[in-house]
Amino acid sequence: MIRKLIIILSIVFFADMLHAQDEPLLKKWSYNTASLMPARKWESGLFQPFRYGINQKMEIFTNVLMLPFIPEAGAKLSWGTKNDFAIASEHSLSVPTPFLNMISRKGIGGLISPEYDFSFILSVSNSIIVSRKIASSAMITANGGYVFALRGKKPDPQSSIDMPLFYPRMAHYYEGTSIRLGTAVKGSIGSRWFYEEGVKAFLITRSENNFFFENTGTIMWAGGKSLRIRGGYILAYGKYPYLTPKWQMWPTLDLVFGSK
């Protein structure tokens, strides 16, 4: 059922073509594609990572707001274009331990029970991204990768945050490697409005609570040369530890700003 949904949505995205200019699209919204930030240009969002173009072959990124809690560093490397397919790879390291220990607390904001202590966890992520223009104003991106964790001590399985968005992204801290596959179509509607529709699957290499799926839809408004406002939804499905597969809809909102 779920796999069928993924296939259906993927077909929709392939078929989703509109007509406008490609150049403004990548200038305004190259995040989540195989395109890099131009050299010496930067952008950041409240939730989207800070990205900085080193040169035409490399950009670096980190999440500025979360940096004190989840130290993270990553790089996106361009592998050029072959047969109209732009190819890039993303590699990052992050240490979620301070964040996990911070939210393992009493009172409001205690997402994890205070009896749990987390030892050192290093999360290692590698992925390949391929983008291709499918119309004058739209492009499709596919990505695939894996994320695993090197840990001092395996966290207690009952210390997980068992809700959509969190659980699939944290699953590999506890057990298994997270294999992530996704595809998204983005395009422009005129010069200031942009859209993105995507699907993402998380497959965790373990025997249970191992499949998660997200469908995201986002509209972005480019308010000026540097400010962009994005909003939309994430429809998430997953098998959580309480064994009842769930659908959940979450709103999304982000402000993105950066170099002109």
Partner: peptide
């Protein structure tokens, strides 16, 4: 509650 974001109560 699907998730109680306090004291680690969760679901």
């Amino acid at each position: 509650s699907e998730y109680i974001p306090s004291d680690g109560l969760g679901r």
